[in-house]
């Protein structure tokens, strides 16, 4: 019983000191600890009467501790959620930003280098993520040639990402040729939309 009481008291001290730590200098903490040590024998004298009160106190303290733990967990969770939401936002941007090509070409236009650099940065930040690059073409020409051209467009992006340090086994390519147009018109406005690489994350 006595030991319990001492433990309980020490717990009280421990908590108080946590509160005080933030505002007090080290020396002050020590003096206050000494000052607060004084009432302890008093508590010991009232041992018999204090038993139910102490029990209650102890339960109360456990509750507080638990609440604090929960709060801490919540904070951590919130931080994780925020991190996750941030990742999702980046992932959404990663997938939304396609790369477009000139007619019958598979070289990466200068303006898309930063786009690919950002994608590489994302893949470096999230090493569990893999990417599927889908090469597409406009409808002009044959399916067969366009399947090959789409494959080359996918490879262009893949090779660029590899040159930025992304492991080759994290990148797969597939060509859809002219089979998955985004723009359905038979004009340059549609065609320019269809000559593209899409980037799909594989998680």
């Amino acid at each position: 019983m006595k030991r319990n009481l001492v433990v309980a008291t020490l717990v009280v001290f421990a908590f108080s000191s946590i509160f005080l730590l933030s505002s007090c200098a080290k020396k002050q903490v020590i003096t206050e600890e000494k000052e607060m040590e004084a009432p302890a024998p008093e508590v010991a004298k009232e041992e018999k009467a204090a038993v139910p009160a102490a029990k209650e106190e102890k339960m109360e303290e456990a509750k507080i501790e638990r609440l604090k733990e929960l709060e801490e967990a919540k904070k951590q969770e919130a931080a994780i959620d925020e991190e996750k939401a941030w990742m999702e936002r980046r992932a959404a941007k990663f997938e939304a930003e396609a790369m477009y090509f000139d007619f019958d070409k598979s070289f990466i236009r200068l303006e898309y280098r930063p786009v690919l650099q950002e994608k590489a940065a994302f893949l470096k930040d999230y090493p569990d993520m893999r990417v599927r690059i889908e090469g597409n073409c406009d409808e002009r020409g044959t399916n067969e040639y366009n399947l090959a051209l789409g494959e080359r467009r996918g490879s262009s992006a893949k090779n660029f990402l590899i040159s930025l340090g992304i492991a080759a086994d994290r990148i797969e390519t597939i060509s859809y040729g002219e089979e998955r147009p985004r723009g359905l018109g038979r004009n340059e406005a549609s065609w320019s939309q269809n000559r593209r690489d899409d980037f799909v994350l594989v998680r």
Partner: peptide
């Protein structure tokens, strides 16, 4: 293997 070239060979 029938063709070996940097370009696209199809059809």
């Amino acid at each position: 293997r029938l063709t070996k070239n940097w370009g696209i060979d199809v059809s």
